[in-house]
Design a protein around this nucleic acid. Structure first.
Length: 833
RNA sequence: GCCGACGUGACGCAACCGGCAGACGUGCUCGGCUCAGACCCGAGAGGUGCAGGUUCGAAUCCUGCCGUCGGCACCA
């Protein structure tokens, strides 16, 4: 607009982020500005970030994305007078520190606390408003104590038990992995091969909570995709268990699980999983060799092979026959590896006409196909493919004509009456393998009686028989059970773990009897299952958290973290919470009310950031070059929080200019009053920024602030009121420059005051809407002119104005107006012809 | 294969409930400032994956296809 003499160039001074940012951070820290406190009558907000694993490589730019989002909301909420709990901590048990310890011989805690120091420094450098007094690490003794306490609760409730089960044993890592940690037969961490081996393990009975874990998802505000993933992972399936007797084997019978009991009369064969216990006993001599070979081959196949060959169905007949529970006919019993031993009963009834897999199996092995569900009620003798949809029953005796759902119910009832079946619900979810054969984890606070057949001292290597069948809980008063000092952290190759080598820790005497401690440790998930509860009351020595602290802050109002935790962490955590709920330790069914996943930040090459690709951006470099405010602004300006988006260094320039412009514009504020236009834009901006923060649409909020800043920049004199409000609006996003401006605009008092608790600017709705609007006039849907109209203009006024508009006449003249569309405030459309 | 999300300028992305497509930012071009360059200031160019449909009007709704990303993967 105008170039006045005092425009940039000779302004007060350039903004120096390297000097300003640490100065304010120091002040916040010294004054404990962000200490979380509850005041009676105030609204509370618990804003939680998924806490990081403090890796050796330090923070990467993905971390501050979610952290900035919650920090903006935290700062905004404080300014709106709410009490905010916004804590940070460390998920610090884990393999990398242990592997580092194995290599160097140093204790894993050394490296762990070193890494934590780096992470803490980096997060503080970004100006997040955490209550650092609540900082915790899952490896702290004061934390481990309560993790163990929760384990004992699980144990006492019968939810923690030992079992000898085939587990995912990873020889390279020297530990077992949860199903969730195995991807395509390889370990999630490191990609090492995983084999199935039977081992004694601690299990958590998460399946006891399967229904509630699925049902209570209705109570939370989570992304739809995450809800779906959890439901599918739980995999609730309603159906029936149906008994088949084995012909010629007195008393031998087995059950199948099906969701389609209505198709029972369509059974032309049954298939047992290769590991089904009955396979051995019923196979005829003639088939024995073939079956044994098949079973052996199936056992050696990796999961990956089984999946990749999923389309080709294989199997061999056992030579035995099952008796159909309804018709009494004999149907052949096959062994096939498309049946999963661990799901349902490990056996299925083959209904090739109405199941795609059975159809495939029957076709490849030449078994008959009998239609029992018809789409139209007519009979079809040749099927091109399995008909899996609902229809009406045919060839099913007295059930003929019933629609599929009714037929299923009738069939189950019938079987129940005959004592040959019952309604049954199964889940894909399995109990959680909770033990790890590692050093750097929480010791499981359990011990066992020891028998010494040859006498002697087990601490000195005397032969000891450990009675694993008689687990004893460590007294709560003895918690935490600490890890022993160890010189060698290598995993044991016998699956007992490195703790088994600490003989003087493992074996101890009590009342003259010898006992042995459990040498397995907990998985990394344990600590992250309940950290949100410890943040409530992190220094409490008498309990994990107090009821007062719980009532003050729970539930978590917003939980932000990566989508990679959509199933594992969130399911485990919810499970523990429900156990605590049943025991009366928490009073909400669900811990996390609202959940948001930040999208991954890709490298400049549009690939996932990784050291191998060399496309990793280091936050330290960005902060050094442009300051924390700019890193925060840039990450929020990149696009929607949930979107996956590439890092583009060149784009940072935009927010650097914005920050400098905000500083420059506000620095030259005068006592000029607000002009009408600026005032309207200010109110509109306040509304937009407030609404966008509520909606977590941070990119558009920044955009609105840029528009306002650009407007002020064009004014010959910047009204002080506009500058003050702008500083407040900017402060959740770029707190350092905002504090500095607030300070300058108040005359740089010797004793600086923070704007962190200044009231958030309010707006007048009347000033955010224009009374007169420029509206487009369309003719046959194409824009031909514009008119200025009152917002509340009548249809007549609009029509008259539209017809008079420049550019419109030429398209309307001489033609009949067939239709007139007027949407007040939006559009005028003349349909002519 | 199944489920979900997405596809807008050279690039990142805006667009409420269908109503002037491209806000905001990067880059580019031109101009100003400057001895010059950088910074800064001002101006400008530039398009809805494809094919249909619904509608006065479609980036938005519907159908099909193509592509990208994420998840699941014989769960009976």
């Amino acid at each position: 607009m105008s170039d006045n003499a005092e425009s940039p160039g000779n302004k007060a001074g350039k903004y120096d982020h390297a000097e300003v940012e640490p100065r304010w951070q120091k002040l916040w820290e010294e004054r404990a500005t962000f200490r979380a406190e509850r005041r009676p009558g105030k609204k509370k907000r618990y804003l939680l970030d998924m806490f990081p694993y403090p890796s050796g490589s330090g923070l990467h730019v993905g971390h501050p994305e979610g952290y900035t989002a919650t920090d903006i909301i935290a700062r905004y909420a404080r300014m709106r007078g709410e009490d905010v709990l916004h804590p940070m901590g460390w998920d610090s048990f884990g393999l990398p520190a242990e592997q580092y310890a194995i290599q160097t011989g140093t204790h894993p805690s050394e490296k762990t606390y070193e890494n934590i120091a780096t992470f803490r420094r980096q997060l503080k450098m970004l100006g997040f408003s955490y209550d650092w007094d609540r900082e915790l690490a899952t490896t702290d003794e004061g934390y481990v104590r309560w993790t163990q306490w929760i384990f004992l609760l699980l144990f006492k409730q019968g939810l923690a038990y030992q079992d000898e089960i085939p587990v995912n044993w990873c020889p390279a890592l020297g530990t077992v992995l949860a199903n969730e940690e195995v991807i395509d037969g390889k370990s999630e961490r490191g990609g090492h091969p995983v084999v199935r081996a039977p081992l004694r393990q601690w299990m958590l009975r998460i399946t006891a909570y399967a229904d509630r874990l699925a049902e209570d998802l209705a109570e939370v505000e989570w992304p739809e995709g995450t809800l779906t993933m959890q439901r599918e992972w739980i995999g609730r399936s309603e159906g029936a268990e149906i008994e088949f007797a084995v012909s010629g084997h007195e008393g031998a019978k087995f059950s199948v699980f099906t969701t389609r009991a209505d198709t029972l009369l369509g059974v032309t064969f049954v298939v047992l999983a290769p590991e089904h216990p009955l396979v051995k006993t019923i196979t005829t001599d003639a088939q024995r060799a073939a079956v044994e070979a098949y079973v052996a081959q199936a056992a050696s196949k990796s999961d990956r092979d089984r999946i990749s060959q999923a389309k080709t169905k294989t199997g061999v007949p056992t030579g035995a026959f099952a008796v159909h529970p309804i018709s009494g006919e004999k149907v052949p019993i096959w062994v096939g590896d498309y049946v999963i031993g661990s799901y349902g009963t490990g056996a299925v009834m083959g209904v090739p006409a109405h199941d795609a897999r059975d159809f495939e199996f029957a076709r490849q092995l030449g078994l008959p196909i009998v239609e029992v569900v018809s789409p139209d009620g007519k009979l079809h003798d040749v099927l091109e493919a399995a008909y899996v949809d609902d229809g009406v029953a045919v060839r099913s005796g007295d059930l003929d004509g019933l629609p599929t759902p009714d037929c299923s119910r009738a069939m189950v009832k019938k079987l129940e009456g005959m004592g040959r079946g019952r309604g049954k619900v199964t889940y894909k979810l399995r109990d959680w393998v909770f033990s790890r054969q590692r050093y750097w984890g929480e010791p499981i606070p359990i011990y066992f009686p020891v028998e010494l057949p040859e006498g002697g001292d087990p601490q000195k290597g005397a032969k000891a028989v450990i009675r694993y069948d008689q687990p004893i809980a460590v007294e709560e008063s003895e918690l935490p059970l600490r890890l022993p000092a160890l010189a060698d952290f290598r995993p044991g190759d016998d699956a007992a773990g490195p703790l088994a080598r600490a003989l003087d820790w493992r074996f101890f005497q009590k009342d003259g009897k010898w006992y042995a401690r459990e040498t397995n440790t907990m998985p990394q998930w344990a600590g992250s299952c309940w950290y949100y509860l410890r943040f409530l009351d992190p220094k409490n020595d008498g309990a994990g958290w107090s009821k007062e602290a719980y009532d003050a802050w729970m539930p978590v109002d917003l939980y932000v973290g990566g989508a990679e935790h959509a199933v594992l962490h969130l399911l485990y955590s919810r499970f523990w919470h429900k156990v605590l709920f049943d025991a009366g330790h928490v009073s909400h069914k669900e811990p996390f009310k609202k959940l948001v996943h930040q999208g991954m930040i890709l490298g400049e090459d549009n690939e996932k950031m990784s050291k191998a690709r060399g496309n990793v951006v280091n936050p330290d470099d960005i902060v050094k070059a442009h300051g924390a405010d700019c890193l925060r602004l840039y990450e929020m300006f990149m696009g929607p929080l949930e979107a996956v988006k590439p890092w583009q260094s060149s784009q940072i320039q935009g927010v650097v200019r914005f920050r400098d412009r905000v500083f420059a514009v506000c620095s030259r504020a005068t006592n000029e009053p607000l002009d009408a236009e600026t005032e309207r834009l200010l109110h509109r901006t306040i509304k937009k920024v407030s609404d966008d923060i509520d909606a977590m649409s941070f990119n558009t909020a920044i955009s609105a602030m840029m528009v306002f800043t650009n407007h002020l920049n064009g004014l010959p004199a910047v009204p002080r009121e506009a500058a003050l409000k702008l500083a407040l609006l900017v402060s959740p996003f770029a707190p350092h420059v905002a504090e500095e401006l607030w300070h300058l605009l108040h005359g740089s008092p010797a004793e600086p005051s923070t704007l962190a608790y200044e009231p958030w600017p309010t707006y007048d709705v009347k000033l955010t809407v224009d009374d007169v609007i420029e509206m487009a006039v369309q003719v046959n849907g194409k824009v031909r002119g514009h008119v200025r109209l009152a917002r509340a203009a009548t249809e007549e006024d609009a029509k008259a104005a539209a017809l008079a508009a420049d550019g419109v006449k030429a398209f309307v003249e001489g033609k009949a107006i067939k239709k007139f569309v007027y949407v007040p405030g939006r559009i005028v459309n003349l349909v002519v012809g």
